[in-house]
Amino acid sequence: MGSDFRKIVELTDVKAEDLMSIFERASDMAQLWRERRMPQSLAGRRIALVVNETGWRNTTAFDLGIQAMGGICVQPPLRWDAHEDLHDLTAYLGNWFDAIVTRAPQLSILRSVADSFDGPVINARTRQNHPCETLGDLAFYYHKHRTIDGIKVAVISPKSNILGSWVEAAAVLPIEVVQIYPAKWHDQKSAEAVSRFSCSSDIKAIEGSNIVITDCWPEGADPAELMGYQVTDKMLDGLPDDVEFFPCPPVYRGKEVSAEAMRHAACRVIEAKAFLMHAQNAAMEWVFGEG
């Protein structure tokens, strides 16, 4: 393995100019995918996809994307929180694999995996962050608008892994991110640390947003406390004409979004999630020093 490989555990691991190059390359990847002429930039690369958790979109996209770019993808049935020592596990994987794409229950575990593995590591999700999901959404926005400078992102969500990576994005990129939710679910610590991230309990803080993100209601929450934060078609009507609405799957109509909002012209979640794979493919090239 060469010394020019990189790792993506948090978006703050990547410089702004490199994130922008990933978005640009994701646009190229989208075209190449449609034309069925994917670059074989992972030819000869062997990637371990270590996933023993629920969810399927971004891990399926990794598996398919790696194969489409000529790589070999294998899913070892191991868990990082099992009885074997983590450093032993990464050493065993290092015997056979050039890179690891993985989920872990805790960000600290995934960071330890990245620190101990001598090769690229990409975070496919933890309970604290989900960098690929945010990469995909921003890549789609950039593909459509050709810029992200100065955009406002409203994340209508409790403190969650989705919000976590939008905070990371705000720490690196020239975007403003606001969390809109009842105060007891605010990520106040991040608001104090990241100047382009803020929290609000006022749904009117959505005004002027270029991107609207939602996440699932907290388990056991009182619906009466959260209905005022449900994204509706009327709410979307009051936003800029070019607003992009990306409710985070899984989407629960009648809870965080209304059924009408899912049919609104601003709702482009299907198109945005197509870019999940294109952005991940671009990231795979980047971590191997190809970009």
Rank of each mutant, 00 (worst) to 15 (best):
T126V: 09
A104Y: 01
Q128E: 15
V9G: 00
D241A: 14
P39H: 07
E176P: 01
D115H: 15
K152M: 10
K159E: 05
V101Y: 03
V243C: 14
G254R: 03
S258W: 10
C248M: 07
V155K: 01
A282P: 08
C199F: 04
W80R: 03
N52A: 11
L226K: 07
M277S: 08
N210H: 15
H83K: 15
R111Q: 15
E260D: 15
A30Y: 05
L138W: 01
R111T: 11
V9P: 00
V257S: 05
L19G: 05
F197G: 07
I180W: 04
D98S: 08
G289F: 07
L276T: 02
I211L: 14
K152N: 13
G291I: 13
V167T: 08
A170C: 11
I151M: 12
L89W: 01
C199M: 06
D187H: 07
I122L: 13
H264I: 00
N58Y: 10
T12D: 01
A26P: 06
L173Y: 02
W56I: 00
I72P: 06
G150R: 06
A224G: 10
H145V: 12
I206D: 03
D242M: 04
Y141L: 11
A154W: 00
L239I: 00
D63F: 07
S21I: 01
N52G: 15
S195L: 11
F140A: 08
E260L: 06
E225W: 10
G65A: 08
W80K: 07
C216V: 14
R125T: 07
Q106N: 09
M29K: 06
R25I: 00
H145R: 15
L32I: 00
K7P: 11
Q179N: 12
W217N: 03
P76R: 02
A266T: 00
Q75N: 14
F246C: 04
E290P: 04
L236S: 04
E207H: 13
Y181A: 11
K255G: 02
I122D: 02
L239A: 12
